[in-house]
């Protein structure tokens, strides 16, 4: 492993729960206001992930008071407290930009149910 990979590996956060495009997530983001720090929760649908390594980002879309809001978070940022998966989604593409133009039922992503194998494993545990 070369030096640059080493420097990057130090910063990559494995603790941010693995989630995928199509999942509905709650991002717990640290906001610094002067001296105090608080956690803001941003909930929405992950519609894209971009870049690799330390610069990896994910885009979360939600509808706020009838207006679509998209926010890009750096995946490895120390300001991300945690990412909770609220609802895993079943999608067939890596970028869900088409959702911007859809309204109503078409703007929904199907829930990803665990496979039979995973269910059996979960029961055994």
């Amino acid at each position: 492993m070369n030096l640059i990979q080493k420097i990057q590996a130090e910063q990559i956060r494995a603790d941010v729960a693995p989630f995928n495009v199509g999942d509905t997530v709650k991002v717990h983001f640290k906001i610094v206001e002067g001296k105090t720090e608080r956690i803001q929760i941003y909930e929405g649908l992950v519609i894209a992930m971009k870049n690799a390594g330390i610069g990896r980002t994910f885009m979360v879309r939600k509808i706020s008071y009838g207006v679509g809001v998209e926010r890009v978070f750096p995946l490895n940022s120390p300001r991300i407290d945690k990412v909770e998966v609220v609802r895993p989604g079943k999608v067939r593409r890596s970028k869900l930009y088409y959702i911007r133009t859809k309204i109503g039922k078409k703007s929904k992503v199907k829930i990803l149910l665990p496979s039979r194998k995973e269910e059996v494993e979960a029961q055994q545990n």
């Binding site: 990057q8 610069g55 120390p78």
Partner: peptide, 22 residues
């Protein structure tokens, strides 16, 4: 000069950096 990468600083900002080895 080894190359460039990025580093998160204390405030969570990404800083572009060049790595120089000796």
């Amino acid at each position: 000069k080894t190359g460039m990468t990025q580093i998160f600083d204390d405030t969570g900002r990404l800083t572009p950096v060049t790595v120089i080895e000796f």
